[in-house]
Design a protein around this nucleic acid. Sequence first.
DNA 1: TATTGTTATACTCTATAACTATA
DNA 2: TATAGTTATAGAGTATAACAATA
Lengths: 147, 147
Amino acid sequence: MRPPSGADDIPSLEELVRLLFRLTGDLRQRFADGAAQLELSFPQAMALRELGDPLPMRDLAQRLCCDASNVTGIVDRLEARGLVERRPALDDRRVKHLVLTDEGHSVRQVHHDRLTEGLPLLDLTPDERRLLVDLLRRAVGQAGEAG
Amino acid sequence: MRPPSGADDIPSLEELVRLLFRLTGDLRQRFADGAAQLELSFPQAMALRELGDPLPMRDLAQRLCCDASNVTGIVDRLEARGLVERRPALDDRRVKHLVLTDEGHSVRQVHHDRLTEGLPLLDLTPDERRLLVDLLRRAVGQAGEAG
DNA sequence: TATTGTTATACTCTATAACTATA
DNA sequence: TATAGTTATAGAGTATAACAATA
């Protein structure tokens, strides 16, 4: 006989999945709240996040896991706010590179700082943090990958 | 001098956040794919997930972190497919309880099974799983909570 | 008066398909 | 022919505000 959710017994898969949902939900909410404060929609903030370095429209679509046609609208709105610029690629005139403006970089940084500040995660000791990263790497199935 | 992302040095907060995003993104994608196979939208699948036990509309809205007005449409579509029923509460005639039909329960179970089967997470040993749960609990700031 | 659920509205995201301009 | 980005379209999610029924 084992108690359903004690401190020392082996946690069930259900418990783990529940925690992961909790964690992802919290992180998502945090991300969305920070974006809303900057008057950014969730996908707009995600786009900004991916644009630390310039990227063709197509690649951004891939990173956002959505169809390329969506990126047009998302970028339209970011460009209208002066956060992003479309620059024709020199070597292939079909391609447009997305480049953050100075304000784009600034807004991106503010959003990121607000996302991470006060994260309960920060309470972990360095050793625990290292351990968690190791476990997470294996949990996402990239144990041997470069990261 | 410390290498940027070796195996034994202390991982940066950036690395941790990147991993969390990776993990949450993967989980979300997995959840959405499984939902799509069952012709459920993401919020519909989330609603099903929350309806293991009956719930008033209001409470479901709260769990989905959205305005109550949205739940009307989401539940409309689930009800049209025969996965959910609205039942007037006996004690308060303003309230409607959402109850899964037999097929609702079935679809919910299939979705959950597909979500968890083959999860890389399963490769962790029991000891590692216990450790990860402990770290995650602290990472979401519920170290002392019941869970 | 306050609350539950609904409706009306407007905006954004989303995929699909058709289009253009390049390659 | 194939590809990058756009446009048109339709469906779904989202919040806000106003509403009816009930508390």
